[in-house]
C-alpha cells in the first residue's frame, strides 16, 4: 500500500455539508466527533475546506440552490473521494419528499457511496458509515 493511501486511511478528513436537512443529522455528525463517541480517536478530522477533504458527508435532501453548492464542493474535492449520505432524507428525500422545493436524495446531484439510514442517524451509525466509506476509499485508491 502506498504511503499516501495509508495516511489517508489512518486519518480521513471529512467535509460536512448540509444541503437541506433539519439539523438533526448535522448535530449527530458533530456528536460523533465529540467526546462520547469520539470519532477523532480514529483519526477523523472535520475540515471546512473541500480541497483537503477525503470524505464528503452530506445530510438532507437536495434543493436547487444547495445542489449547486454541493456540486461545486464535490468538484473541488480531489480524487479519490467518497460520499456518505447521512439520514433518510439524504438517501431518498425522507419526510421532505413531498415538499415543493426538494427533489429527493443527494444521489440526484452527486454520486453517493455510502448511505447511512436513520432520522436522525445515530452517531454509532455515522461512524459505521464512515468506516464503510474508508473501505471504499481504499478500493478507489487502489489499495
Amino acid at each position: 500500500m502506498r504511503l499516501v493511501t495509508r495516511a489517508r486511511l489512518k486519518s480521513p478528513w471529512i467535509l460536512h455539508f448540509d444541503c437541506g436537512s433539519c439539523n438533526g443529522c448535522d448535530i449527530e455528525i458533530l456528536a460523533a466527533l465529540t467526546p462520547k463517541f469520539d470519532a477523532e480517536r480514529l483519526g477523523v478530522v472535520n475540515i471546512g475546506d473541500p480541497k483537503q477533504a477525503d470524505v464528503i458527508v452530506v445530510t438532507g435532501p437536495a434543493n436547487p440552490r444547495s445542489a449547486r453548492a454541493l456540486r461545486s464542493l464535490y468538484e473541488q474535492t480531489p480524487d479519490p473521494k467518497v460520499v456518505v449520505a447521512v439520514g433518510a432524507c439524504a438517501a431518498t428525500g425522507g419526510v421532505f419528499r413531498n415538499c415543493e422545493n426538494v427533489f429527493g436524495g443527494v444521489d440526484k446531484v452527486i454520486p453517493v457511496d455510502v448511505y447511512v439510514p436513520g432520522c436522525a442517524a445515530r452517531p454509532e451509525q455515522i461512524i459505521d458509515g464512515l468506516l464503510l466509506a474508508l473501505r471504499k476509499l481504499k478500493e478507489k485508491d487502489g489499495g
Binding site: N63, R65, C99
Partner: peptide, 11 residues
C-alpha cells in the same frame, strides 16, 4: 438564504 428551503409550509 435558500440553501435549505424545502417548502414545508406548502407541504
Amino acid at each position: 438564504i435558500g440553501y435549505i428551503h424545502r417548502g414545508i409550509e406548502k407541504a
